[in-house]
């Protein structure tokens, strides 16, 4: 089942493009990362999904319903955390939970209190006296308390300390294991790597990659070090999939652009002393996605 579907979604702010021609499908039960640098269009996409912004072109759907037209109905099944969370300063955590319970017509105080214990938040403190991290925790509790089928979290770990980040990751993994879908935006690669089943990379308002983490890993370069037994003529002709950036008579340091098996096959009849193949370097892959001038995927 599909929870989120974006069809050729375009949103402009006057002349400025927020997002353009975005097509995206998020199946149920996945932790889906939405990655991109600041200003890439992550929040615009989320705001269209939440029914705050009307698409200029195309359509945004959640659970098969239009986000703009069926907003209230759709949002009943969504837990949402805004990117720049602002809460009413006069509210305490408990009051906020009671208020949201009334709006959602469900008692969320019990579930919210359990989450508060998990995230180590005192619900009796007023928002105006809370630190940024505490407010973020409260925002998360309000988004998670009704255990929605879909969580839309805009940079949820911003201002959380590492321990709380870990708690959140754990909670989101548990939610996904129960069949909940998590769609979260981030510009932190490590976070996405740790949590996501699948991710989309957005840059300058366009999706430049949309794949599973495994497939992206297979596309990423690996650092390779080859130690030769002796200096042979063949060494002067590295294969195309090997980008040698440092070489001596006895050792090459290179980036592997192809598969490991191709490398092993090529080395099979070569006089090597040692071979080191590093983990896929996702960071450099993402950097290429972020920086390349055209929106096409890098090869």
């Amino acid at each position: 089942m599909t929870t989120i579907e974006l069809h050729n979604l375009t949103r402009r702010y006057g002349r400025r493009i927020g997002v353009q021609g975005v097509n995206l499908t998020v199946p149920q039960g996945l932790v889906y990362g939405f990655l991109g640098p600041n200003g890439a269009g992550k929040s615009t996409t989320i705001r269209v999904l939440m029914g705050f912004l009307r698409p200029t072109e195309g359509q945004a759907q959640m659970f098969g319903r239009d986000s703009w037209r069926d907003g209230p109905r759709v949002r009943a099944d969504v837990g949402y955390l805004p990117g720049d969370l602002r809460l009413y300063p006069w509210l305490t955590g408990s009051e906020a939970l009671r208020l949201v319970s009334r709006v959602r017509r469900r008692n969320l105080v019990g579930a919210g209190s359990e989450l508060a214990a998990r995230f180590n938040l005192d619900l009796n403190v007023r928002v105006r006296s809370m630190s940024r991290g505490m407010r973020q925790k409260l925002g998360l509790i309000l988004a998670l308390a009704h255990d929605p089928p879909l969580l839309i979290l805009d940079e949820p770990t911003a201002s959380l300390d590492p321990i709380m980040q870990e708690q959140l990751y754990e909670h989101l993994r548990e939610a996904a294991a129960r069949g909940r879908t998590v769609f979260f935006s981030s510009h932190t690669l490590s976070e996405v790597q740790r949590l996501c089943d699948r991710l989309a990379i957005v840059r300058e308002g366009r999706i430049v990659a949309d794949d599973t983490l495994e497939n992206l890993r297979s596309r990423a370069k690996r650092e390779v070090i080859i130690r030769w037994r002796d200096a042979a003529p063949v060494h002067n002709n590295p294969p195309q999939f090997l980008d040698v950036h440092e070489r001596t008579d006895r050792q090459w340091s290179a980036s592997l652009n192809g598969s490991v098996s191709a490398l092993v096959q090529w080395l099979a009849d070569k006089p090597i002393d040692d071979l080191t193949i590093g983990q896929p370097d996702l960071e450099s892959l993402f950097r290429r996605y972020y920086q390349q001038p055209s929106p096409e995927s890098p090869r």
Partner: peptide, 14 residues
């Protein structure tokens, strides 16, 4: 203006 609209209009209410 104060940014609370995100929370208010993010709830399931028209």
């Amino acid at each position: 203006d104060r940014g609370t609209a995100d929370v208010l209009f993010g709830l399931p209410i028209s």
